[in-house]
Design a binder for these strands. Structure first.
Lengths: 229, 229
DNA sequence: TGGTTTTGTGACCAGATTGTAACGGCTTCA
DNA sequence: TGAAGCCGTTACAATCTGGTCACAAAACCA
């Protein structure tokens, strides 16, 4: 089954650079959404829900850092990978130091091949769980389009993090995910969060899944992590 | 718990070069095994079963090329990727190196970053198949992805250490592992535990494997160690 | 056969791992 | 703006696991 092309939001104010990037991404089969300013970027994220954002850190108006921070704070966009572009390596260090939570950093001038590779790497990391499909496991049904989860016809109420956690599990039922892998997938790459937080959210997910009765479908694998079924 | 770090066997007689390489690999999270000569390399491949070999072309004694040829001839080591290092840049050598069966070929002086990238590339190429695979031996089935062990359709219950122990055995059924090798593999390199601990865990593994009946598949090799089958 | 070495295993306790309630800080939404 | 909801951390309890020891059993050797 052919999959819809992943969409990339390119945020870059310098037209030449933006077009080179867009050209190459389109040549690789991505759908490209362009933004010139931070405000525009934030608006387009809402409207178009891109699969990944490539973000220049120097922007007129709302800076790239601020865009990144906002996106990584909002629960509904936190899972979208962000690749930050900056002109010098010291800047990368600074940007990192600000704990903006970007998933990857690339120094300009960058090799186009390398950037493509990084875009693909980030998509590989998160995409499967965000694909607009209906995942099913036993009596659980997860509709990533409408962001709804059903268990035996009943709609379950669960928060954004629990949702992504469950989506990750349902992508490969039975597979054991380590706490680190889950943090990487569900929370994001450069985010510092205690691994015990995963346990707490697993507990919340369990409670949510059993709110209308039924067995706990989440399996703890001691010393390894968690799995669905 | 973090996934087991991939191990790299570095074969290089020049101490400075060997340590630079080892330092960088360790910084990247790999476990490094060092060898100075071809003979030593061949021995360590048996003992440590590294995930990948980085091999200098010019070695005292058995040459790099010869080591490569031997490893690529033997059935049990053929799958291990080999990256050859050489000071010479002539096309001829490159061809000869690849003909011998090396999986990649890097010319000295090399960029460390590039070499790391190639190491990772080779591991990506082979690792998924061995890590995600379902190992089988007689009526025992071990699924590393779901962390489950079956014996004749029944799910076996075994702790983390027993699981790793069994996984090690099933990687190479029939192979005899010394207590030291098992400690190294299952417990970790720089951990001090009595070798008798291995015996105790072998006992626990045996009990776990027979919890639903069946023969004991673990063989004791007096004075040497243990093996599966 | 008797003595020696090696291996098997039950029991025990220390420490690690996990489940979960509670809390304070933020964000979101009406 | 206030209330409700969500998040990450922490602390504590319950549970499980791992390493050691001691002694029994088995294998080996002369």
């Amino acid at each position: 089954m052919a999959r819809e092309a992943p969409s990339v939001l390119v945020v870059e104010d310098e037209p030449a650079q933006r077009e080179v990037l867009a050209y190459n991404l389109e040549a690789e089969g991505f759908r490209v959404i362009r933004a010139e300013t931070g405000d525009e970027a934030l608006m387009l994220v809402d409207e178009e829900t891109p699969d990944i954002v490539v973000l220049d850190w120097m922007l007129p108006g709302v800076s790239g850092i601020e865009v990144c921070r906002q996106l990584k704070t909002r629960a509904d966009t936190r899972g979208t990978p962000i690749i930050m572009l900056s002109a010098r390596s010291e800047e990368v260090d600074r940007v990192r130091g600000l704990e903006t939570g970007a998933d990857d950093y690339v120094i300009k001038p960058y090799s186009v091949v390398e950037l493509m590779a990084r875009v693909r790497a980030q998509l590989r990391r998160v995409r499967p769980s965000t694909v607009g499909a209906v995942l099913e496991f036993e009596d659980i049904k997860l509709d990533s389009e409408s962001h709804r989860v059903y268990r035996r016809e009943e709609v379950l109420k669960l928060g954004p993090t629990e949702f992504r956690l469950l989506a990750t599990f349902m992508e490969k039922p039975g597979r054991v995910w380590s706490r680190e892998q889950l943090l990487d997938r569900v929370w994001g790459r450069d985010i510092y969060v205690d691994t015990r937080t995963v346990d707490v959210h697993i507990g919340r997910l369990r409670k949510a899944l059993c709110q209308h009765g039924g067995e706990d479908p989440v399996r703890t694998v001691r010393g390894a992590g968690y799995a669905l079924g």
